[in-house]
Write a protein that binds this DNA or RNA. Sequence first.
RNA 1: GGGCGGUUAGCUCAGCUGGUAGAGCAUAUCGUUUACACCGAUAGGGUCGGAGGUUCGAACCCUUCACCGCCCACCA
Length: 875
Amino acid sequence: MLDKTFSPADVEKRISAVWEASGAFRCGTRPGAEPFSIVIPPPNVTGRLHIGHALNNTLQDILARFERMRGKDVLWQPGTDHAGIATQLIVERQLAERQMSRLGLGREKFLEEVWKWKAESGGAIVEQQHRLGASADWGRERFTMDEGLSRAVTKVFVELYKQGLIYKDKRLVNWDTRLQTAVSDLEVENLEIRGHLWHIRYPIEDSGEFITVATTRPETMLGDTAVAVHPDDERYKALVGKMAVLPLTGRLIPIIADDHSDPEKGTGAVKITPGHDFNDFEVGKRHKLPLINILNKDGTFNNDVPAPYRGLSREAARKKVLADLEAAGLLEKSEPITHAVPHDEKTKTVVLEPFLTEQWYLNVQPLADKAIAAVEKGETRFFPENWTNVYYSWMHNIRPWCISRQLWWGHQIPVWYDADGKVYCAETEEAAVKLAGGKKLTRDEDVLDTWFSSALWPFSTLGWPDQTTELDRYYPTNVLVTGFDIIFFWVARMMMMGIHFMGKVPFETVLIHNRVLDEQGAKMSKTKGNVVDPITLIDEFGADALRFTLALAAGQSRDMRIGPTRVESGRNFATKLWNTSRFCEMNGCVTVPGFDPAGVSETVNQWIVAETAGAVLDVTAAIEALRFNDAANAAYHFVYDIFCDWYVEITKPIFQSGSESARSETRATTAWARDQILKLLHPFMPFITEELWAATAPTPRDSLLVVAEWPSIRSQGAQAASAEMNWVIDLIKGVRSVRAEMNVPAGAKIPLVLTGASAESAARLARHIDVISTLARLTSAESGPAIPKGSAQFVLGEAVVALPLGDVIDFAKERARLEKDLKKTQDEIARFDAKLSNEQFVAKAPEEVLTEQREKRAEAQALAARLSDAIGRLA
RNA sequence: GGGCGGUUAGCUCAGCUGGUAGAGCAUAUCGUUUACACCGAUAGGGUCGGAGGUUCGAACCCUUCACCGCCCACCA
């Protein structure tokens, strides 16, 4: 017997264990079956599941479970990412709390600490994925720093190096002054902030004149090596070639002409600081200017600036430079402006500086060309399609990828140097030493960008570089499910690496899902404190409720809003499902082995079979089309509006007073329909459906629901049955509506007379009299020739339904109600007439539209006639 | 500066190839009839952001404007 209420917590825990023990999530157990594979976007191993993950994982799980039920050999590949910077930062912070430091520990000890932290916290997010019900092949879980994946990383690096695509270069990078590592362009976020534009006078050598430059970063003037003006700028033509005296340093710097200078901006003269500005670096190269580095790695000023500024932070230096310029009378003015300043994309802090360092770069251009072509050829498709443009625009403007990081946590670069600094790139130290002819070598200290290993995920997790059977069977994967924020970071790079190393795109479809916002539509962030924790939601409402809510919200728009009130309605739906299953159980609706839905003879059963078949088609088509919201909606509508509201209600009088054969057929059909519902909902709500699947069967089922067969239904006589049941439903609805408007007490039973009815309608009434009487609360229901006095009336098809209410009826009210309906109908007719008398419309509209309009007009006409007839009879 | 989304019922959103709008939540009224008050019945509620245009016909196509949001860019 099912409990009175559904308690998700107990059930989820138990069912999880059952699935795990059954091996249902394992790939490769269905040898002949068509493979279907998805790789999970690996979350940060030490992270926590956030609502975005919950959405992402839910959608993947829906696909995995759906395809598994359709008989495919499903591999959903799970795993986690080492997340270099984020993880290293956390561990450094923890060390700081214990008065220890990374540098103090040294590389080896520090890495031990990180591994320890990974071991401690690394299970958490995977545990959370389990709680969500993720049906990944957990036995195959991978970590980007696993031995096998590390081998893939090394091999890829070495190959790319040999191909000349990886090289070392000394140029400006985005330097994180806090972590003291390079970061890639993608990790920089330009944020608008309020600042000032300072106008500074640079004296011209041997003259009393000045040239005024405008800058938002006055402190960098200490590293200026030129002033640039536009070649065509008449104001400054005479000054080109002269020297300016750089204030505070006394250095002489040339005034040069360069297109970079924009006469419209600032003063039209721009200070050039090649060591600390990307544009100026280029200008410097063009004009062979010296490059002065004025910063230490931590962002403080170094010894190449005049003594008073040495050791100052950037902020302090700015203050002092401005004060000193002011004192020297060289600060002309400052105007407040808002301008974009590079921030660290994760922490939103101003820790980045353009900084001259030597780094490893990957020339991605040739890989990008192939990756673009693959999408153009349709080998990989984005869904929704408009994300293709985002992919293209970035790929078309791709720049060399800075892949080295000055961190310790990550894949150490497989490069060794001899005493002369000569490079030996090899997969192992032994191989490098061999290359070097036995010389003593030291390894490159740096590690690779985290995304370098993530880029290999679709094949490294399948065993590459070994030629495994999994690689053969599951690559390329079918669909990648991810958010738009990592199209560049991850999707694009997987495309490039996949094509380059596997010769094939890594996935056929890229499903870009919504970004999750809070209920007010704000981006969730820890600082704002509006983060919705999916685990809290699961605790409160159950995993099924959360999943269903997420699926329902997963439309094609860019964002979705999620919060407790929405999940609550998902919970209510789960409860509904639970309760309707209890109803089935209480009425002895037990699955009948070998039940043939096409063989039922009761009209209502034929109807529910047809409706079920329709729902199966809708849900199936929607999931296939990756339209999760449509799929969830179709299932919801069927369960709620068709099964619970009508079928179950209609079966009540049958169970109570139907014939033995009708009752037994209806029991079997109800059980069957409930089973189909459990199947349809399983991808969305796996726990409760699996629980009900077992609990509603008197003897153990042939299989768990998770591996049950996805329904495909044929039904017969559907159209006639549907027409009949829809007529019955409309009749009941009509009565209920009149009762409500006439304020007939809910407890009061009333008689019904069907007048002007066709033989078919009369027969329908007779056939379903029990059902109609119960659901419409009638004392009697019969066909009759005339409308009794004192009747409320409504039109049903060709017939008029009369409800003789006697004293209860309020004639004024009834008249008003009917007149309102009549008015509405007449307006409709007028609209049809206007249309149909429009020659243009008649001439140009397609025949079927015309016919349809004529039919609708005729219907409305007939309805109007009956309504006015009814009104006439009231008098 | 370039690009992309969005603007539909009080709120959150559907509306796939053009035939004058749907759901959930919320609201109102009624309600304990064999599951379910995490419920049921009934009802109200929209000039589909504005303005033009194409069309017999536009929420849907085109132009333009407005507002909101996102992404990219070498914005001193």
